[in-house]
Computed example of a mutant assay.
Amino acid sequence: MTESDAYPPIEAYGVVGNLETCALVGPDGSIDWFPFPHLESPSILAAILDAERGGRFRIRPTDSFETDRWYVGKTNVLENGYDEDVGAFVQSYGSDALDATGLLLPVVGFLPFDDERVRGTIEAIESALVDDDVFVLRYDGEDGLPGDEGAFVLCSCWLVDALALSGRVDEARSRFESLLSYLNPLGLVAEELDPETGTHLGNYPQAFSHIGIVNSALYLGYARGRETPGPAPMGIRLGEPISPPE
């Protein structure tokens, strides 16, 4: 066996998992890496690191066979993460719960902003997670944790970003200005806001809240046709935003 036979390129492996752990399966059916019982647990098989002593478990037909992988590129998420009944990308496979991180799918370039599934996700999140146009909860559904939490400022910024870069610029600006009204006289804001009282909750001041506000200002400027100083933020570099008017 040559070294190249013993160690297939990493891209040749398939990933099989159950949302708690996963295994790397080679093209010959060899399970060469398998942390158990959780993804962060030590691997009980490690042939991917040492072909002779690392350990593997192989399942394959006795006759000649060809191998292929089911998922390519983004198709795993597209097939399992999008719920036709909800009309949106959901929090986890098999769930119908919504999560504000769905607003980031077009920002990181996963799908363009004008994709109907992206538009549906934004609208579903607006309907289920948004209160008074500006307060955005992280997710819905049970999480097993006691008590309630406030609306996350960063999630409010993600909504502004998604609206601005999908062509809903006036709505994005209105919500952004509403969000800014909750900053204190020093321009600082906490991690969360109470949707009923506007009280600052959680860590204060919170750095990622302020980063979100800066990004939203840059995205709004872009969406209104203004030049962005310095490097363009991620949603412009990686995403496919609706072009601003000339």
Rank of each mutant, 00 (worst) to 15 (best):
G29H: 05
E171I: 06
D5V: 10
P231M: 14
L180G: 07
L220E: 03
G235Y: 03
D96M: 08
R224H: 09
R53A: 09
D32S: 14
N215W: 00
E192K: 15
R53Y: 10
S127P: 06
S166F: 00
P9A: 10
E142H: 11
R58K: 13
T121S: 14
L19T: 12
S92E: 13
D131T: 14
L201R: 12
D132Y: 00
T62V: 09
A128D: 04
A232N: 13
Y182F: 15
R117H: 00
E192M: 08
N76S: 11
D63R: 05
V90N: 10
S95I: 03
I44P: 08
R168Y: 09
P37E: 12
G235Q: 00
A128W: 04
R138F: 08
L180W: 03
V72H: 12
P241L: 08
E227Q: 11
A223L: 03
T121L: 11
A100I: 10
E3Q: 10
V160I: 15
P9T: 13
S127K: 12
S43E: 07
T199M: 11
Y219C: 01
T67F: 14
L129K: 06
P9I: 10
R226L: 11
E66K: 04
V77I: 14
P35K: 06
F34N: 07
P229F: 06
S243F: 04
S43V: 02
A6R: 15
F113K: 01
D131Q: 13
